[in-house]
Write a protein that binds this DNA or RNA. Structure first.
Length: 466
RNA sequence: GGCCCGUUCGUCUAUCGGUUAGGACACCUGGUUUUCAACCAGGUAAGAGGGGUUCGACUCCCCUACGGGCUGCCA
């Protein structure tokens, strides 16, 4: 008997999809999907100066990567401007709004005077109760006739009961002099018309909610359930900005984080349900609620993001993992896998995926399978590439070039070199791989792995190739 | 300036008046290990400060400090 839940994500298309916006979208998506409801998408493009089609495309792309699908068509707020104007005029006839002929200069002067007098710079329009007969033949805006006394209460699912004194709110403009709606009017009209039941958005809108609620009241509409979630901050606790590095979701894709891991991490960032840490998206849908959202801004922690992603890389099925890896390659503008590489990788995945956290790491650990052959060690590159075993490699390289590269031939050389230098046999692996990167081994990388790899890995590889 | 929100280990958080304040990431130690990693065992580590209320406060109230947001014919 519970009415259908309808949530929405309503970004303005002024750039890419911000990681914070991605999380907001995720919360809305999770909440709706977990309850058999609908998740809608609206682009708030009423600001023609700053809105671009490219930005809209980037946002859609970001959502698609995160795996957040929406119901129905994408709504363009700009396209609904006539409807917004219609509502503004309805407010006029209902007497909950009025025409204001004050010029911007007058308003600025009023504010300056108020501030100089030490009062709130809340503009009080002289036209609020003016007789229509005195209206001049001049451009005007439509302002809402907000209550001058009393208080507006926002019953917020995250922030609790927030009380705003009405005297601190001015008669906001709902329709500009060019007949276009302002954000405050447009959101309310759209959310109402779209049937949105739960507004889950950043808490930078908390104060706005009071104004918007007045519009709902003015129109006699049902106020949605509010849930204002704290914004994400950078590792230093400051508002997330370019200074912190990646702020757009596509940057995270390009860095090689799997989408499932991103969803898991972002869900847990500022939300908790008991001790649940690692979960699938299905599980998240079932668990997610508004109650578990914290009130304080959460900081982005890349270490934990990586750890979470590591679990998901290990959990994913090989084919799906490989498919997403190819998407990563495109996002990172790297050459695609050849058919042969694709097959080699697929076979190597079982032995490496539980050791990698990100796609670049996965590729790195699978180098032994990807290298083309034959390979000739490059002494110059080797020397510059590693710090730990630099000396060993230098002494080793000439001998490697002359050796017959079979397991039997390599093993004594490597063991001897390791012993000579008092270093673990296995420490040779990293510099060797680095030296061989882009080239290969004779007779095969597989043989290298027999020497430097772990028995268990080899056994699994053998099984995979059988 | 005014208004609003926030403050538990380094980080994400649990706790809904009575707990040795729990978990996860990170970190440290030990184990395992033919590298890295992974894994196993253990450890360090927290209620911003000050007043109240209460038999008893991390939990409720007030003040301060700090952080954030809003205060547009931007969204």
């Amino acid at each position: 008997m519970t009415p259908e839940v309808i949530t929405r994500f309503a970004p303005s298309p002024t750039g890419y999809l911000h990681i914070g916006g991605g999380r907001t979208a995720l919360f809305n998506w999770l909440y709706a999907r977990g309850r058999g409801g609908k998740f809608l998408l609206r682009i708030e493009d009423t600001d023609r100066e700053r809105s671009t089609p490219e930005a809209t495309a980037a946002i859609l792309k970001g959502l698609a990567w995160l795996g957040l699908d929406w119901d129905g068509e994408v709504v363009s707020q700009f396209d609904r401007k006539d409807r917004h104007a219609e509502v503004a005029h309805q407010m006029l006839t209902r007497g909950t709004a009025y025409k204001c002929f004050s010029t911007q200069e007058e308003i600025a002067a009023f504010r300056a005077a108020e501030e100089a007098a030490g009062r709130y710079p809340v503009f009080l329009s002289p036209w609020r109760d003016a007789d229509p007969a005195t209206y001049p033949d001049a451009p005007y805006v439509i302002r809402m006739k907000a209550p001058r006394s009393g208080e507006t209460v926002i019953d917020d699912q995250v922030q609790g009961r927030v009380v705003i004194k009405n005297e601190t709110l001015d008669d906001m403009i709902v329709l500009r002099s060019d007949n276009t709606p302002t954000y405050m009017l447009a959101v309310v009209v759209d959310d109402h018309d779209m049937g949105v039941t739960h507004v889950i958005r950043g808490d930078d809108h908390l104060n706005n909610a009071a104004r918007q609620q007045m519009v709902y009241d003015a129109m006699g509409w049902v106020v949605p359930v509010w849930a204002h979630i704290p914004l994400i901050h950078g590792p230093d606790g400051k508002k997330l900005s370019k200074r912190h590095g990646a702020t757009g979701v596509e940057e995270y894709q390009a860095m090689g984080y799997p989408a499932a891991g991103m969803r898991n991490y972002l869900t847990r960032l500022g939300w908790a349900k008991g001790d649940a840490e690692i979960f699938t998206t299905q599980e998240a849908m079932a668990m997610f609620d508004l109650k578990g959202i914290g009130r304080a801004p959460a900081r982005l922690d890349f270490k934990k993001l990586e750890n979470t992603c590591g679990h998901h890389v290990a959990m994913m099925e090989d084919a799906a993992l490989l498919h997403e890896l190819e998407g990563y390659l495109r996002a990172a503008q790297q050459p695609p896998l050849t058919r042969a590489q694709h097959d080699l990788l697929l076979r190597a995945l079982p032995s490496v995926k539980d050791r990698a956290k990100t796609f670049p790491e996965l590729i790195d650990k699978a180098q032994f399978a990807l290298l083309s052959r034959p390979v000739v060690p490059d002494a110059q590159a080797a020397v510059s590439l590693d710090t730990v075993s630099r000396g060993i490699l230098r002494s080793l390289t000439p001998r490697l070039q002359n050796a017959n590269w079979t397991k039997e031939a390599l093993e004594p050389i490597l063991t001897e070199a390791a012993a000579e230098n008092g270093i673990g046999f296995g420490k040779l692996a990293a510099p060797l791989r680095a030296a061989l990167a882009g080239r290969t081994v004779t007779p095969s990388v597989y043989d290298m792995m027999l020497v430097i790899g772990r028995d268990e890995t080899i056994a699994r590889l053998e099984d995979a190739s059988a």
